[in-house]
Amino acid sequence: MTGLRKNVISFVVGLFLSYAFFWFIRLGASAPVPEFLREFTDFSVNYYSELVTSFISLLVSFVIVFLARKVFRLNSIQHLVSCILPIVIYLIYLQIAASFALVSFLYAAIPAILITTTIVWAKKKT
């Protein structure tokens, strides 16, 4: 597979992750609070949906990046930039156009970026 095709595939994976942030945030906001956490109202109101959003983003990002590496053999730094570029551009757009939504999207974006870079750097060291 040529380098251009791999970059396009990495870019599409990054676009999918950027779009999936809406889904992650919605799932995190609609997740029911477990019974044992309901007595801690400050935690459940302020942090529970963000933690669920981060966990879902972490899990789905890991699966997507791992599958993309195995199926398309994407493992170089160049493909990392192609994958993270749509996420960063979208976050910059949110900062300019809708700064009130930026914090919610950061709860989904930061775990996705960390997982993507960790997988690529781990592969590079071995």
Rank of each mutant, 00 (worst) to 15 (best):
P34R: 00
C83F: 04
F66T: 04
L27Q: 11
L94R: 01
A97F: 11
W121K: 12
I110D: 02
F43L: 10
T118C: 09
Y48A: 02
T117Q: 10
F40H: 08
P32T: 12
I113Y: 13
T118L: 13
V13A: 08
A112C: 06
F62L: 14
V65D: 03
L80Q: 07
L58E: 07
I64E: 04
I113W: 14
I56P: 00
V33I: 12
L15F: 02
F36D: 04
S57K: 01
S76N: 12
F62E: 09
G14S: 07
L17H: 01
A31R: 01
N46Y: 12
L91E: 08
A101F: 11
R69I: 01
S18G: 06
D42Y: 07
L74W: 02
S82I: 03
V120P: 03
G3C: 11
G3K: 14
L94G: 01
E35K: 09
F105I: 08
L102C: 02
I56G: 00
S57F: 03
A97G: 03
L91N: 10
V81L: 14
F55E: 07
C83L: 15
E39A: 13
I77P: 04
A68S: 10
I87K: 01
V13Q: 01
T117R: 07
Y93P: 00
G3I: 13
A31K: 02
V45P: 00
H79S: 12
L85H: 05
T116S: 13
L102I: 05
I64L: 14
I113M: 15
V52G: 07
V45M: 11
L17T: 05
F105K: 02
T2P: 10
I25F: 11
I115G: 06
A97E: 13
K70D: 05
F100I: 12
L91D: 05
V60F: 11
A97W: 09
G3Y: 14
A122T: 00
S18E: 03
C83R: 03
T126M: 15
L27H: 04
F62Y: 15
T118V: 08
F43Y: 04
F105A: 07
I87N: 03
A29I: 15
F22W: 10
T53P: 03
I9P: 00
L51C: 06
E35W: 07
L51G: 07
V52M: 11
L102T: 02
S44Q: 01
I110Q: 03
A97M: 11
T2M: 12
S57Y: 03
I119N: 08
I113K: 07
L102S: 02
F36R: 02
